[in-house]
Every structure is written in C-alpha cells, then in structure tokens.
Amino acid sequence: MLAISDLITVNFAPKGILEIPRGSQLLILGPPGVVKTALALRYLADRLQNDEPALFATTLWSPIQVRDTMSQFGGKKLNSSLNIVDGVSCVTARPSEETFAFQNLYDLNTINLVLQQAITAMKNGHLCLDNLTTLMTYSTPLSVIKFLQVLCARVKDRGVTGLYLLETGVHSEEVVNTLRFSVDGVIEIQDEEEKNQLVHKIRLAHLRGIQVDTRWLVYNELKPLKRLTK
C-alpha cells in the first residue's frame, strides 16, 4: 500500500530528503472513501514504529474502528502507543474510553484546547485530524478555517507534524482554496473509473519551500507502487 513516505521518497530522493519536513502542516484532499484515512493511519504507523509519538483525532471513525484499521498496518504493539482523541463519543452520548475526548463538535475553541492538551507531551510528534468536513457540518466553514489557522500555528510551534483531512465535492471552491493556503502542503486524491473499476490516484500537489514532483501515483492496496507517466 502506498504511504506518504513513498511520495516523499519518490519525489525527493535525488535531493536526499526522505520524509516530510518536521512541523509541516498538510491538507489531505479527496472524495469520500477510505484512502485519506488509510494514508494518514499508515503514516502514523510508520512514525510509531520509529518510536515517535502519534495522535489521531477522529470525528468519523470510532476509536475501535481506528485501532482495528491501525492493527492492519502495525499490529497490537503500535495500537497501544497510538493516542486517540475521541470526537465520536460526544455524538453517541457515551463516556469515552480514551484519555482525550471532545465534549461536542460545534465549540471549536474547546476542540482546539483539547487538541493542544493532547499534543502537549508530544514534542516532535505527529497529529492527524479526521476530518475537517465533519467539523464544518456542525459549524460554519469560515469558523473552521479560523480554527485551522490557529491550530496549525500552535501545532507547528511544538514541532508537531499535522495532517488534516478534507472531503472534496462538499465545500465551495473558495473554502477549499482558503484551506489550501492556510497549510504548508497539499496531498490530493482522485478517483477515476478505469475498466469498470475504481482507481485511486494520489499526488503531492505542493509543499511550501520545496520543489516537488507533482505527477499522479496510482494508489493500489494490493500491488506495489507504480509510477504514472504523462
């Protein structure tokens, strides 16, 4: 399965850069589906394997589902070291089993504070927020944009790398573009119909301050990485 490090390795290998620069804030854009989450979880799994702290904030998958999916990438050991911020139990009105949980999904200030608390102990760690679209479901796009700008700055200040997931085809172009320039880099995912099946394509569209190769790569869960040539 394709990982973010594949994008980086392929793109930057000649220059000797092998991973996303620390403290980068990346937006992962794509249609509803599983690729965005799988990509982010795979990234966190790789980081955990390096003994770096990782945090997954979810508003969409229950912590059980997140850990189930995570175990496909790295087994039980990684699962116990993955920190989860539970943004689901507040919707189901049940007490959360995780240390950190959102009380609701519409008070973005509190959500921001909970995330700050959760990353306090994670110097040089990695954060994934899945996803911004759910937050926009409970409040307005503009307030989520402001929320993300503050969050990104604070996360970056701690040297934590941030991945923020956003659905395409839901929000207006202005909202998506404003979010795109609020972060350091953008990973795009597209679905294409090919021979009656779905093919997921992925690319690093830009990364601030670094020249990137923006060609599409085929994301396939079964086969190894294949380069797309134009």
Partner: peptide, 10 residues
Amino acid sequence: TNLRSLVQGS
C-alpha cells in the same frame, strides 16, 4: 457527497 463523507462507506 457530504452525507457520504459522514458514514463509513458508500
């Protein structure tokens, strides 16, 4: 698309 994004599959 938004509704699809709020559930786990389509």
